[in-house]
Simulated assay, not measured.
Amino acid sequence: MIKKHRALCTGVAAAAVAAALLAVPSAATASGQPHPGGADDTATASLGRLGERAGIRIGTAVDMAALAADTPYRTEAAGDFSSVTPENVMKWESVEPTRGTYAWAPADDLVAFARANHQLVRGHTLVWHSQLPGWLTSGDFTADQLRDILHRHITDEVTHFKGSIWQWDVVNEAFNDDGTLRNTIWLQKLGPDYIADAFRWAHQADPKAKLYINDYNIEGVNAKSTALLDLVTRLRAQHVPIDGVGVQGHLDTQYPAPHDIADNLRRFDDLGLETAVTEADVRIPLPVDNTEREAQAEAYSTLLQGCLLTAHCTDFTVWGFTDTYSWVPGVFGGEGSANILDTDYRPKAAYTAIRQDLALAAHRR
């Protein structure tokens, strides 16, 4: 069974990021803006533009330290994608490292970058068991106090970014692989109702933002995805304002990519929910050979096609685009090369497969 762990938060000075953003070239080929070539420019159009023609957004997670320091990184992030997700700078330990004191600047810089390049922003993430500030995890709070803290956090963060966020990952990784709820600080102290409360509070703070529940190992039909399906069915029956389900898509070439992704996503589609692939990457045991590269391309293609075959799958986001800044080697010993561009920003077979799938889907529309 594939496991994953989020990369550690990387801080960056707001002034450095702001200066770097001013240096971003005009993203004339970014999705959402007309591409000079028109409908027959498939070979040169950005991923975002190809996705627009295929009916979905193509996004990437963004490392703000890389965005500040690396010109090729900024150029690629600005030009090839139509949405962005913060890797770390909207997580709780980043935005409120000290209780009651907020550090919005790095996340504000990402929003400004996206606006300048005509991109949408996915907010990530409001409620999670990881990357919490020390004052929260070490505090001896009662259930009522913790509920008030969570309510305030969601309200403050969503309100701060109101009108700037397209989709929020409201609750992240709430399930175990066997379909039981993860035994987090939230479940222990607040019970399972914390999930419904989080969606209600987020909706109150920004009624126009799309609200998602997000998890890994739910790509295909299995115990975990079925438990999530049962949960969102109950939440919808209770009129909880949940709009979508995020399928992370962290895969490994050592395990076959599930080929029932479209069947799985269709189950949520039938409930009237949106779906999205939110964190796609495919790690490879090192050293990499041609067979592994082909397997990686196939896995990315399988994820993307599952989304393209689902009527209300709105977007496909890669969790970073270059191996230079990948979280994988630091977490999975002996594995890496998980992204669609190599460390020199050269496209891999996976990048080509994504382009081909999008072009074919656009042709069929």
Rank of each mutant, 00 (worst) to 15 (best):
K3V: 14
K4Q: 14
K4F: 13
K4L: 14
L8Y: 06
G11L: 01
A14M: 04
A15V: 09
A18Q: 05
A18W: 00
A19M: 05
P25K: 15
P25W: 06
T29V: 04
H35C: 06
G37P: 03
G37N: 04
G37S: 07
G38W: 03
G38Y: 03
T42Y: 00
A43V: 04
A43I: 03
A45E: 11
S46E: 08
L47C: 09
R49L: 00
G51L: 01
I56H: 03
I58K: 10
G59R: 09
V62E: 02
V62F: 00
A66L: 08
T71G: 13
P72H: 00
P72C: 04
T75A: 01
T75P: 02
E76T: 14
G79C: 10
S83I: 02
P86R: 00
V89I: 05
M90D: 02
K91Q: 06
V95C: 07
G100V: 01
A103C: 11
W104M: 15
W104S: 15
D108E: 14
D109W: 09
D109H: 06
D109S: 15
A112T: 13
A112P: 08
F113H: 06
R115H: 11
R115F: 08
N117Q: 13
N117D: 12
L120K: 10
V121Y: 08
R122E: 02
T125D: 13
Q131S: 13
P133M: 14
T137K: 14
S138G: 11
F141A: 15
L146V: 07
D148T: 07
D148E: 12
I154V: 06
T159K: 12
F161Q: 08
F161V: 09
W166N: 12
D169P: 10
V171R: 09
N172R: 15
N172S: 04
A174V: 14
N176H: 11
D178Y: 09
D178L: 14
G179Q: 11
N183I: 01
T184S: 15
L190R: 03
L190H: 01
F199S: 14
H203F: 08
D206K: 15
A209T: 12
N217P: 04
N217F: 10
I218W: 00
E219I: 10
E219Y: 06
N222C: 10
T226D: 08
A227Y: 01
L228Q: 09
L231W: 00
L231G: 08
T233M: 09
A237G: 07
A237C: 05
Q238F: 03
H239W: 05
H239M: 12
H250E: 03
D252A: 11
A257N: 06
H259K: 10
D263C: 06
E274Q: 12
T278S: 15
V282W: 03
R283D: 05
L286I: 08
N290M: 10
N290R: 08
R293M: 09
L303I: 05
L304T: 04
L308Q: 06
T310C: 12
T310L: 10
H312K: 14
H312R: 15
C313V: 07
D315S: 12
W319R: 04
W319T: 11
T322G: 04
Y325M: 05
P329N: 11
V331D: 00
V331E: 07
F332N: 12
G333V: 07
S337V: 10
I340F: 00
L341P: 07
Y345D: 12
Y345M: 07
K348H: 01
A350S: 10
T352R: 07
I354M: 14
R355A: 00
A361H: 12
A362G: 13
H363P: 08
